[in-house]
């Protein structure tokens, strides 16, 4: 006999039938209700957790998008080239100035009939001959060899 027929005979055998116990249906229906209830509770808890997460994320994003102070720029390494009697440059030097372009008065951009009177102080104080001028350190040029004093 072919194995296909054997299998069909086996699967139609009466011994394959299992008796159903009393209360089996009620147990299954109760189990399904219990699972449904558990899933509902778990879903509500997950939804609540997701809501709390969204709220916290929103708060965090709002906090990070608020304007904050830029850290002070590192001071430039500058040395005075001449002594002066003026006060220390630190009092007039603004650390944030190197970050911005200096405001210059450009007359060609303000073509009005009467230019508004300058009521504010210029951004740079008037310089005097004795005032200190700040320049970057120049790189010393090497002296020619023939100008070096001969060693005794």
């Amino acid at each position: 006999m072919e194995i296909d027929d054997e299998l069909r005979r086996l699967f139609t055998d009466e011994r394959l039938t299992l008796p159903v116990g009393e209360g089996a249906e009620q147990a299954i229906v109760a189990g399904a209700a219990r699972r449904r209830k558990r899933r509902g509770v778990a879903g509500a808890a997950a939804g609540g957790a997701a809501l709390v997460g969204v709220v916290f994320a929103g708060i965090a994003l709002a906090g990070s998008s608020a304007p904050h102070k830029a850290p002070p720029a590192a001071p430039m390494s500058i040395t005075p080239t001449s002594s002066s009697s003026s006060p220390a440059p630190s009092s007039t030097h603004r650390p944030a100035a190197p970050h911005r372009l200096p405001k210059t008065t450009r007359p060609e951009l303000t073509k009005t009939a009467q230019p508004p009177p300058r009521t504010t102080q210029p951004s740079t104080p008037p310089t005097s001959p004795e005032e200190t001028t700040w320049t970057a350190n120049p790189i010393p040029t090497p002296l020619p060899l023939d100008t070096l004093p001969e060693g005794g």
């Binding site: 299992l18 147990a27 299954i28 229906v29 189990g31 399904a32 699972r35 449904r36 899933r39």
Partner: peptide, 20 residues
């Protein structure tokens, strides 16, 4: 076997019944 069959039927029917 009958016991695994009963467990299998019950497990699947409970899952299906929970989203009937």
């Amino acid at each position: 076997n009958p016991h695994d069959a009963a467990d299998l039927v019950q497990t699947v029917l409970e899952k299906v019944g929970s989203r009937w």
